[in-house]
Design a protein around this nucleic acid. Structure first.
Lengths: 326, 326
DNA sequence: CTGTTAGCGCTTTCAG
DNA sequence: CTGAAAGCGCTAACAG
């Protein structure tokens, strides 16, 4: 910057202000300075800016696993919001709630390497004590899964109950009466919400809890079959478990959807790739991330009160649901 | 830090050195200082450290789309390496080679917000002029796809030719003679390499070029069928195109693998989830990212010459390949 | 083994 | 409209 100032015959103060626009600068001078900046390809040193201003222009994102299709989409959304507001995005995977990892993003905030945090909780329940302690230090937003004990923290979530009702209504309309719910972790609010909404249509639905992975859908259906449970439809709390369930049903010689109808949740990419295409409830995860990013940045930019957002979901009917057999 | 120094009755210099260990400190003093640091929960301001040292402790990753299963895995690997070496990871999606986006990660390097860059090129050919210009400013590593014109830049890639040969040998051993290759962009070295290696076994194989998406596998098979081309096996350059091909074959009433055998490439998660399970060549993308991250950090830490890495691939035989019919 | 001093590159009072 | 000067929090000579 000194270099620019010298070349333009002005002080660094003026250069600084032509860049920031925080005070009037003679148009002629400004033009000259800008031209020099272009010419020297000058960019301000981010460390110096940060030291001076106390802000890094970077937000952090904590997700269980960036490589996961589910969280990857959220990350994409947050990045979209960050990019739009000219913020950088630093990601931290919180695999298995490893305490060393947890410490990592907390430190990011404490050292001011990031100005705020978008946190997507692991599906299992982690303790979030550190978060609580630092929620007051730096702005925080929850994406996808709000944390009930921290209701004052803004969050972005979806109308899960609506989605569960839509799925249930769809199945009921097809004449199904005997349903099984392959649910998520019972400790999550999102699980309870969907389970209960579904039961409004199928009060006697059997609920079994999985871990959101393909394998657990498979295992749950195995148990069901081994115990001679009869059912004509399955509502799974995510697509992977739905797919695992379908695999097991097929191995048993049961056809989907002729013998059993299956509805998933999320509408991850694979739902439309498999055949038959999976009927599911679409959750807009990219938008979830984007809204979370926007909420965080709004706080950073001094917005006094930011409101939590609840996004709509949509039932996508594909090929795994059909009228109940004779 | 001043606060710690005052409380411990020493100078900030001493505090600084107890933290960094760059010069001997009286054990008693050191202990006292450390205790105070603990007590005050002191963490050094990253902006100040950066300004002083000129290094940010952050590496950047440029990928076409962080939400994509393919690139997400690479990102995971890079993050693993970054975390292990206590670096932060900042991600930049380079969607559609949007010039504004391209500028973003270049600026990250120029402003010294990141110390180096892991670059995973988009599958289509982007011009990488800016990269070339800044490859000299900050360390750079290519992950997954090396850029031929920049052979001096270290890269991490896979033994693609080996993989193509393994796939071809497998199909040949099953008695297949009429093969179709659903390839990637013809402009990519990775496409040429696999196509040519496959032809060592199937010299007359018909090669058609797709765009790595599900839809293009589907469309290519449509064309094949419409033109009455006969074939008993397909080698696709990625799993998505393989899946698209399978979908189209099935619509035509052709059974996989009874009528047509299909081999994919990459072994993305979905390959094992679909039924029948997809026979494919596994590329270890997480490891690709991890090695790329390690290479970059090695350069950052002053390693003089870092060598490019080539990772092995592995043929995973599942259920979409079978002996040729009749 | 430790303290003093001088910046790193920028922004921002405070005076013109 | 502009400049001089004082730091932001830290590290690294350079003396003790």
């Amino acid at each position: 910057m000194q270099q620019i100032a010298d070349a333009a015959g002005v002080s660094t103060t003026t250069v600084s202000h032509t860049i920031s626009g925080k005070r009037p600068v003679n148009p002629a001078t400004a033009a000259r300075v800008r031209q020099l900046i272009e010419q020297f390809e000058y960019v301000p040193n981010s460390g110096a800016v940060r030291l001076q201003s106390g802000r890094s222009g970077v937000i952090a994102l904590a997700v269980p696993d960036i490589a996961h299709w589910y969280f990857g989409r959220i990350a994409r959304g947050v990045e979209l919001a960050a990019d739009a507001a000219d913020y950088g995005l630093i990601v931290c995977s919180t695999v298995n709630a490893d305490p060393r990892r947890e410490k990592r993003y907390v430190n990011l905030l404490r050292t001011r390497a990031a100005d705020g945090l978008v946190y997507t909780s692991s599906r299992s329940n982690t303790d979030i004590d550190d978060l609580v302690r630092h929620a007051r230090t730096a702005p925080l937003v929850f994406a996808d899964e709000a944390v009930p004990s921290l209701s004052e923290v803004p969050s972005v979530s979806s109308t899960l109950a609506e989605g569960a009702r839509a799925a249930a209504a769809h199945l009921a309309a097809l004449g199904h009466t005997r349903a099984v719910v392959i649910a998520g972790y019972p400790s999550l609010a999102s699980t309870v919400e969907r389970r209960d909404a579904f039961r409004e249509f199928f009060p006697r639905a059997l609920t079994l809890y999985g871990d959101f992975e393909h394998e657990s859908g498979y295992a749950i259906v195995s148990d069901l079959l081994a115990n001679g449970v009869t059912f004509t439809c399955i509502f799974a709390h995510n697509d992977l478990m739905a797919l695992g369930a379908i695999r097991r049903l097929r191995e048993e010689g049961l056809r989907v959807p002729e013998d059993v109808s299956v509805v998933g949740f999320d509408d991850v990419d694979v739902a439309s790739l498999v055949s038959p295409g999976l009927t599911t409830v679409r959750k807009d995860l990219v938008e979830t991330g984007r809204q979370a990013g926007k909420l965080l940045i709004a706080q950073l930019e001094g917005e006094p009160e930011v409101e939590s957002v609840v996004l709509p979901v949509e039932l996508i009917v594909r090929e795994t649901t059909a009228p109940v057999a004779g």
